[in-house]
Each structure stands twice: as C-alpha cells, then as structure tokens.
Design a binder for these strands. Structure first.
Length: 326
DNA sequence: CTCGAACA
DNA sequence: TGTTCGAGG
C-alpha cells in the first residue's frame, strides 16, 4: 500500500550511534519484535524456539539478542505495547490474515509433496505476534528492569505522544506513520548493524512547505494502514494537490474521489487515543540470573542460543553501569 | 517494509 | 517521471 510514499517525503538523516548516546527512545514494541523476529532470529519451522507443548517463543531470543544493542550505546528503550485495535485497521488486518492463510495452505501443499525447504520458507510467513509472545516479552523486560508501558490504542501514536511531550527523545519504529502521528524525531533501523536513521518532522514540513495537518492529508491521500489511498496519487502528486487545493476534502472534491471514513482517519492521526498516565525509571538494575532462568528453564530455550546475548548484557552492566543512567 | 520491474 | 504491482524478508 501507499505507506512507503512517505519515505519519499520524509527528511531522513543517518546518525552514528555515538551521536544518540544517552537518548531515551519510546520503542513501538510490536514493530521492534516483528522486525527482530523476521530479520535476526529467523522464526523457524524446526521447533528450536518452541516449547514441548508447541508454544512459539522465539521472541525471548530476540529480546536477549536485541537489548544489548541499546545497552552498549547507552540508549534507554521504553517499550510501548499496543492496546485495543482500531476498527479502521481491520481491513489491513484482514488482508494480513488472508495472506497468512494462503501461506499456510501453500506450506501444507509443499510439505505433502515432500519439499521441506519450501515448506519452511512459507511457514516463516505464517508467524504472528501471539498473546504469549507479547506477555513473555513483558515478563522478560521486567526481570531485566527495562521500562515498558501500555498504550490505550496504537503503540505508534503513544510513542509519538511521549516524544512530543518531551518525556522521551525519540519515537523508535520503522513505520513512517510516526510522522503522521506527530513524532518530532523518530529513529529507524535501531535493530540493524549499521547506522541508524533519524526522521525529522519539522524538517520534512519545511522541505515541502506543508503544515503538519497538510502532511497528514498527504499521507491519507497516498494511503495508510487505516485507509486505501486515491488511485494515481503518489507522494509527488499528493503534495502538489494539497498545495493547490489546501486540504484533503478540497482535493477529494476536485478529483471527484472519495475515501472511506476520511474524517475518522484524519482524527485518528490528529487526535489519537493516547495517555499521559505513564511513568518509567531510566535507571536500570537488571536481574540477569532470573532472566536467564526464565528464558532457559521456564521457556526451554537452549542455553547456548542466548548465552552471548546475556554475556553482552552483563558486560554493559559492569562496564558502563546501567544503574548509573539517570 | 524494501526493492526492482512494468507501465502510463 | 511518478505510480503501481509483485516478490521477498
């Protein structure tokens, strides 16, 4: 869909990790877990990260391997979990569910004709963030004393809100929607090896001579997770149209186009369901032994899969002294 | 989401 | 030149 259109418009700059040392980042937990699981941990079909009763907990490996990245650069993550799913997102979720079911059927077929490699490849696409995955992630974060909060609705919106309020320095997500939710600064690619990317809302607005409200309108015209965009409108044309007509409604009128629930979608970005009722401590004192027991004994993850991760966490505690962050 | 190819 | 579409992660 048209979400990537925003990349074309966004003011993005690479930043070395040294430059963001000491930053507090509100991490979109869903986005982070998903990215980590698909790129680094490789959700597998062979059951390595599955308990005897068949529960998939690859997330625990992801968390243990992913946290050192923050610790080693003195970055404090505050994980933000999603709350209730917006009705408007249901269409998108239906699409994903359909894709997942298709992949499951294809995987079954591949397995039946004896193509194990193909079956494994397809099964990797059928994974989703289960309740267990989210809950065990919370429990592990608690043991490691890493702060997390619950969003009333979209985690993305809540992270943006915290950044806007100045309670964190950045929203952390791959999703360009962060811009539409009004996050002043967003960090992207915090999981990957190389430099991270900083996305700047003010600079984006300035570069295209748009107000924040107009940028939201441009995003909606191109399409978001919450609405289908207008056919034929990509980033360039949408900006041109907003300049010409002023706002979303005028553009739709002029082109004789319509978007389902436009007002609700706009409202969702401009006045999202978020809370100010959060608090977190950035001084961390992780209980590494308890965390290791939780992962290895309670959830049956092979000890060597997480050994290096825990080692790195331990090293950052003793070397930089996590509990000295305040 | 990202990339690359096809297409007005 | 900008948008769409499909495959892969």
């Amino acid at each position: 869909m048209g979400n990537a259109a925003l990349r074309e418009l966004a003011a993005i700059e690479e930043v070395p990790f040294e430059e963001i040392s000491g930053a507090v980042v509100a991490i979109d937990a869903h986005n982070w877990l998903y990215r980590y699981l698909t790129t680094t941990v490789k959700w597998t079909a062979d059951g390595v990260y599955t308990t005897a009763d068949g529960t998939e907990v690859a997330n625990l490996v992801g968390v243990v391997q992913g946290l050192p990245k923050f610790f080693e650069h003195d970055i404090v993550p505050v994980f933000v979990f999603d709350g209730v799913v917006t009705d408007l997102k249901e269409a998108e979720i239906d699409d994903r569910r359909a894709a997942k079911e298709r992949a499951e059927a294809e995987a079954r077929a591949a397995r039946e004709r004896g193509d194990r490699v193909e079956a494994a490849r397809l099964e990797a696409r059928t994974q989703s963030l289960t309740e267990t995955i989210q809950q065990t992630t919370r429990e592990l974060l608690e043991l490691l004393d890493v702060p997390y909060i619950e969003a009333p609705a979209e985690g993305e919106a809540q992270a943006a809100h915290m950044a806007k309020a100045g309670d964190v320095d950045y929203a952390g997500t791959e999703d360009y929607d962060a811009l539409l939710f009004g996050a002043p600064l967003t960090l992207r690619q915090i999981t990957s090896k190389g430099d991270s990317e900083r996305m700047d809302l003010e600079a984006t607005l300035a570069a295209h001579e748009l107000t924040y409200e107009q940028l939201v309108d441009v995003g909606i015209l191109c399409g978001t997770d919450f609405n289908e965009g207008v056919h034929g409108l990509g980033p360039k044309t949408a900006v041109k149209a907003i300049h010409e007509h002023g706002d979303l409604m005028s553009v739709l009128d002029a082109r004789n186009a319509a978007i389902d629930d436009v007002e609700s979608v706009r409202e969702l970005f401009l006045d999202p369901d978020v809370t100010d009722d959060y608090g977190f401590d950035t001084a961390l004192s992780p209980d590494i032994e308890a965390a290791r027991t939780f992962v290895v004994e309670d959830w049956e993850i092979p000890a060597d899969e997480v050994a290096r991760g825990f080692e790195r966490i331990e090293e950052s505690v003793t070397q930089t002294g996590l509990d000295q962050w305040t």
